[in-house]
Amino acid sequence: MSARRPYVRPMTGWWRKNPFFIEYMVHEGTAFFVAAYALILLASVVVLGQGEAAWNRWLEFLMSPLCIIAHVVILLAFLYHSWTWFNIMPRTLPPILINGTRVKAATITYGGLAAAVIASLIVFAIVARLAP
């Protein structure tokens, strides 16, 4: 019989043991806020189909301070998602070559954030034009 008795360590609570993993769990956790926002939009289109009275009640709820505060929290989670998404992007993209030299990781991250700012301004401008 073999005298070998390899010891396997448990993984319980691994995400608490390293600041890098804590940050990872936090940015993965932004998914709950993305889901919450998707559900709010989903509820909105459903309520919209139930007529003007139902919509106005829903609108009252959306305008309540509690709901606006909740959206501020969701907004913070979305902003953190944007930052972490573009922060990991240099690790997920194939090397990008410009004139034979590799684009730096920081350039990719800040390029992504700049694209987000531009896209957001365009969306905001379109929406502002849609306002009556």
């Binding site: 390293n18 890098f20 993993f21 990872y24 990991i88 240099p90 690790r91 997920t92």
Partner: peptide, 17 residues
């Protein structure tokens, strides 16, 4: 895409990439 593998790599291999 945790990315910690590339962080700890002593040879800058960037395995996550």
């Amino acid at each position: 895409a945790v990315g910690y593998c590339s962080q700890v790599c002593p040879k800058k291999v960037d395995p996550a990439n």
